[in-house]
């Protein structure tokens, strides 16, 4: 199965990259893009056919390695 893990800075954490990208977009005339938050995206190919197992494995990997819980949160999609 494939799991997609989206890691983003928590809303309370300042995102210097996202802020800079937003400013760049504003300078290109995209005033309607009010803000940008940048994150990381991981695709995990998992050796299982069980959705629950896949989700648990992806969550374990995200908790332990992919995300730093002090500053980041994550969302998982499994298919």
């Amino acid at each position: 199965m494939r799991a997609r893990v989206f890691v983003t800075l928590k809303p309370s954490v300042f995102d210097p990259q996202g802020r800079t990208i937003a400013e760049a977009l504003h300078s290109l005339g995209y005033q309607n893009v009010e803000d940008v938050r940048q994150g990381k995206y991981f695709e995990l190919d998992l050796a299982t056919t069980e959705t629950a197992t896949a989700r648990a494995l992806a969550a374990e990997v995200a908790d332990k390695v992919l995300a730093n819980p002090v500053i980041e949160s994550y969302r998982i999609e499994v298919e």
Binding site: L9, V13, F14, P16, Q17, T20, N68, V70, I71
Partner: peptide
């Protein structure tokens, strides 16, 4: 705590 990219990048 944790480290973020420098303000100003």
């Amino acid at each position: 705590g944790a480290m973020l990219r420098n303000r100003g990048l």
